[in-house]
Design a binder for these strands. Structure first.
Lengths: 99, 99
DNA sequence: AGCTTACGTAAGCGATGACTTACGCAGCTG
DNA sequence: CAGCTGCGTAAGTCATCGCTTACGTAAGCT
């Protein structure tokens, strides 16, 4: 979650949804240097959101399904921990107020 | 989303799921000063995630249902933008590769 | 084997941001 | 009306982090 806090990193992450990409290739589409992209990928990898794979001299990065599932379930829990409950209260509270 | 990047802020946000709370009351449960909590709440409010309401000299903060719905739909979109597609590819890719 | 490509890492730097203390203001209470 | 409580804001400080340049390293190509 903290890993997605940075806009650039989030952009890289979203870009990876299109499929596996190499670092240099990826860096070509962002206004940052290649090492910067490397570091971002390192953080994402550490967060379990991406995976790296070798392809010749290049290193392809792709989304990690497992980490994504974990994130998803975390968010699911996020809503359900008393959130639906709160929503009902909110709706009730809203009943008499017109904007 | 950037608003939830900070751990302390996220903790405050989660704490608000339990219901509306005053600032000082909230600050009593965190290792930070009251003004710090105020600033965090300001950011959350600016992000549309929380709402403030007055109660005497206190100011109660609660989750904003509208902002939460926006966040939820954003996340929904997040998964669906080619993500299911990617998953199939990932599964397929897994088929014959033994590490 | 030597050269080139592609990447990761280290070191340094500038900027963002989280936190604290000090201050001013609104609202209850006597 | 005076005092107290509770909060927001301002100013300053210190850490964190994102970015760049420079360097070392692994893998294809000739």
């Amino acid at each position: 979650m903290d890993a997605l806090g940075d806009p650039t990193r989030r952009a890289i992450f979203e870009r990876l949804k299109g499929g596996a990409r190499a670092v240099g290739d990826l860096a070509g589409e962002f206004p940052v240097s290649r090492p910067a992209v490397s570091q971002h990928l390192k953080v994402l990898k550490r967060a379990g959101l991406v995976r790296d794979r070798r392809a010749g001299t290049r290193r392809l990065y792709e989304l990690d399904p497992q980490g994504l599932e974990e994130l998803r379930s975390y968010l699911e829990t996020f809503w359900q921990t008393g959130l639906a409950d709160f929503k009902q209260a909110a709706e009730q509270h809203r009943k008499g107020s017109g904007s």
